[in-house]
Every structure is written in C-alpha cells, then in structure tokens.
C-alpha cells in the first residue's frame, strides 16, 4: 500500500471525470503523429507508455516502438501489463548507443514505424520510447514530431536546474513520481521554479502514475498535439518520407 500523502496545492494537478471524454471527435487520420518519450534510466518512461496505452486503448490506433537497451524487456512489460496487443509493439536494438538510435542514425526506428504501419494499417499515434540515457539525450526531428522528456523526483530535485536539451527543449517535460517527493526529500516547488526558468513557455506536467494510472494530463496534451498535427498534415504520407 502506498502511504497517505497530503496534496501539495502549490503543484498544478487535475482530477478528470472518469468515463467522460471532454473532447470533440478528432478529424480523419493523416500520417500517424510520432511522439518520442525520452529520459534517464528509471524515470518512468515505460510506465508512462503503459499509462498512455490505457488512456488511448479504445480511442486511437496506437503503435509503440521501444529502444530499451535490453531488446525485449520494455515490450514484455507492456505485454504483461495487458495494456497493448503485442502486435502493436516493435523493439529496436541500439548496440549500446541509445542516443544514436533516436538522434544521429534513426533508420532502424523509422523502419520499425514503417513496419507497424505495414502490419497494422494506418495508425493515429506512434509512441517511440528511447532507451534509458542521460540528460543530453534528445530525439531527431526526422524521427518524431513531438518529444516528451521524463524525469522523476527521486532523481533529485536539482535535475531541472541541470538542464540539458531534454529538460530545456522537449515539447513537454514530465516530472514523474510526485507521490515519492516527501519520501526522498524532493521539493516540488524548487523543481517547478527551475523548470519554468529553463523552459520559458514550454509546458511541464507533474504527475504520479500511482495516483493517475492513465496519465490523464499527458494524454490530454497528446490529444491536443494530435489535433494540430491532423490539421497541419492532412495528406497521408508514408513514415520516414519527407
């Protein structure tokens, strides 16, 4: 059992009504929106992917590409969690270079995205999970349309201040495991202040997947990006083509 934790009202959070979708239906599909999910080892990338799969299971045609250094572990985690059909997951080996596979030499990931579309037909959303890396890892714009960088409070509340391209430039920064903050002595207000200083107007979401197993606010952000993406690229284009 998770210990009872008092809500810190200074930290932004929401409580979406379960079972009610506040969103208008999305327009017809363009090429799948590709969203990269990166971040340090153990920050909760795979748990976030699982939560998003729960959120989108009956809503979007979803594919997942995972770059975990141990080829099958992340995919197996998602399969065990029962949140995604194994046929919708592709694993990419990165040869001890997780950052290379998502940034400098993205062909294997693009192939995996293509294979998902070939096997499953048109998709709405492809989540590309990076292998656990450090604060300098970032996705190529040739691979993903948007990127989420995931850090966690247990990694230390100084992480946002350290910056790095993930923290400063990711389209969304997720500060994960807020339920652990009191246990590890992390000050969420400090993390919030530093993230704002580093990121300017770019959004940051504090979340605890223990408290919100569907990662509702991250899912909302993706829905918003998907709506924009569909307006911006109405013509279907095969993955990997300019």
């Amino acid at each position: 059992m998770r210990p009872e934790i008092e809500h810190d009202e200074s930290v932004p959070h929401t409580h979406p009504e379960p079972g009610v979708d506040p969103h208008a239906p999305l327009p017809a599909a363009a090429r799948a929106l590709r969203v990269g999910i990166g971040g340090p080892v153990g920050s909760g990338k795979t748990a976030l992917v699982a939560a998003l799969c729960r959120s989108f299971a009956d809503e979007l045609r979803l594919g997942v590409v995972t770059n975990d250094i141990y080829t099958t572990e992340d995919a197996d985690f998602l399969k065990r969690a029962g949140v995604l059909d194994p046929a919708r997951i592709r694993a990419v080996e990165t040869g001890c270079c997780p950052h290379t596979a998502i940034r400098d030499d993205i062909g294997a990931n693009l192939d995996a995205v293509d294979e998902l579309a070939e096997a499953l037909g048109p998709l709405d959303l492809v989540l590309v999970e990076s292998g656990g890396d450090n604060l300098t890892a970032t996705f190529s714009r040739g691979l993903v349309d948007r990127q989420i960088f995931v850090v966690d409070v247990a990694g230390g509340d100084k992480v946002p201040r350290k910056g790095g391209p993930g923290v400063t430039a990711a389209d969304l920064l997720v500060i994960n495991k807020t339920d652990l903050a009191p246990l590890v002595g992390a000050d969420l207000a400090v993390m919030d202040r530093d993230a704002r200083a580093r990121r300017g107007t770019l959004p940051t979401i504090f979340q605890s997947i223990t408290e919100d197993p569907r990662a509702s606010r991250v899912a909302d952000w993706i829905r918003h990006e998907l709506a924009h993406h569909r307006v911006a690229s109405p013509v279907p284009v095969p993955a990997g083509q300019p």
């Binding site: 990419v92 080996e93 990165t94 040869g95 270079c97 290379t100 596979a101 400098d104 030499d105 993205i106 062909g107 294997a108």
Partner: peptide, 12 residues
C-alpha cells in the same frame, strides 16, 4: 561510422 546507415547497432 557516423554515416546514418545503422552500423552502430551491429557488432557483426
């Protein structure tokens, strides 16, 4: 070796 053709992922 930095030519982007996936060589980094192969130990041959």
């Amino acid at each position: 070796g930095r030519f982007p053709a996936g060589a980094h992922a192969h130990s041959s």
